[in-house]
Design a protein around this nucleic acid. Structure first.
Lengths: 232, 232
DNA sequence: ACCTGAACACCGTTCAAGT
DNA sequence: ACCTGAACACCGTTCAAGT
């Protein structure tokens, strides 16, 4: 992790791989635009650096100014390379989600498919706050890769006799539950901080409370509910 | 709405109600601290103004500088009165949640209790983005008032034979689902913006999609799941 | 005591220069 | 062409001065 290639940009005046584009190369028209000569920065380098900053210093230390410093380049160069803050976030999310989407081994039983999806998705959101924050502004998940995951769960439900539309909405119940559960857990804050006069029952609830148990029971309820609604 | 008393602070040099505290009134020791003489601002005035700004100009226009301008007072006076940004948000959330908590009429059947809670809670979160953002950092909901709402739902579940702990976790499934559902809906963004090559099935899903139907079916699944797990 | 101007340490983004 | 310094329009918060 520490010798990640992305950290090389940290060097004060490192010459960032001018290796592969030597000729000026006039635009060939239809081809994907070749970069010009003094192009010091690629999108990928930016996203690499952003990943490192986000992991090492936290998401709130991530800015064009900090990225510029780390990459040895003017902040505005980073800005122009990636397009803007939203694009940077989108790129970061896409990368993380793609890694997540590649990690599945699907079981046979549809109940296990639902459970594996929910559990893995939960891990993703707990580990990557930015994905949680962007859960939404990019549709179900975000990428072409993750679409396959969604499709796999929906297919498992259709195989049990649900119509496409009902299977899709059923998937979304699980999806929405996981998003909400992790959002609440991540932002837990001062649950028991000496707030005045909480209701007796609620105080008791907050006392004996485990997010693990909460998630597990939630999943049980969802699976039971889905099962109860399957045809026949 | 437009002649809300809180907007009076908008006047350039309005003398903000010096009406009720005339005598210097030395601190009586144990009593809640009486405000000194030149106290130009109360917490309530700040929260009033903040509510107006948030509703009229949007949450992102809400700042100590903008509040100061509206109240005809230095930004730092607002800051010192309320304590800090987190306190301002907490106060705003508490007020909104309390209003919400007062609006319930509870049906008899436990299924309807769950549905009424979920539907009303959803309305609250959709209408008040700040509550959605703070859903978490303040525990289940936030206030003494809202504790009664939580307790009412949990009690309805206990009346069906669930133990306290299971009833509480069951409540949280509904809670988490609503939080997630609204979070996704609010941040929907560019769902169908020409992203490249989405999976066929997912594209189809995004086409015919209604958050209303998604919520309704979600609730159906939850209620069915809870019912399936009731004793006997 | 209470209020507040100025300063500190940040943001994203625009735009007109520099090479 | 590509890169970038300076400026614009903002933030929350600290702190020492003003009354």
């Amino acid at each position: 992790m520490l010798d990640d290639p992305a950290t090389s940009g940290q060097l004060p005046d490192a010459d960032p791989s001018t290796g592969d584009a030597v000729t000026p190369m006039p635009p060939t028209g239809s081809a994907p635009r070749r970069r010009g000569r003094p192009n010091v920065l690629t999108r990928e380098q930016v996203v690499d650096a952003a990943t490192v900053v986000a992991n090492e210093d936290g998401l709130d230390r991530l800015s064009f100014r900090s990225l510029g410093a780390r990459l040895g380049v003017a902040p505005m160069t980073v800005h122009r390379t990636i397009g803007g803050l939203d694009d940077l976030h989108a790129e970061l999310v896409r990368r993380t989600v793609d890694e997540f989407a590649d990690r599945f081994t699907w079981p046979d039983d549809w109940r296990d498919v639902v459970r594996v999806f929910a559990t893995t998705f939960r891990d993703l959101l707990l580990r990557h706050p930015l994905v949680l924050e962007s859960h939404s502004s990019r549709a179900p998940l975000a990428s072409t890769e993750s679409d396959a995951v969604v499709a796999r769960v929906v297919d498992a439900l259709r195989a049990e006799g649900l119509g496409t539309e009902e299977a899709m909405y059923t998937f979304f119940v699980v999806y929405d539950f996981v998003v909400g559960h992790t959002a609440v857990q991540v932002g837990r804050g001062d649950s028991e901080a000496g707030r005045p006069e909480r209701h007796r029952l609620v105080a008791e609830m907050l006392g004996s409370h485990s997010y693990e148990a909460r998630f597990t029971l939630g999943l049980d309820v969802l699976v039971a509910g889905i099962e109860a609604r399957l045809p026949r």
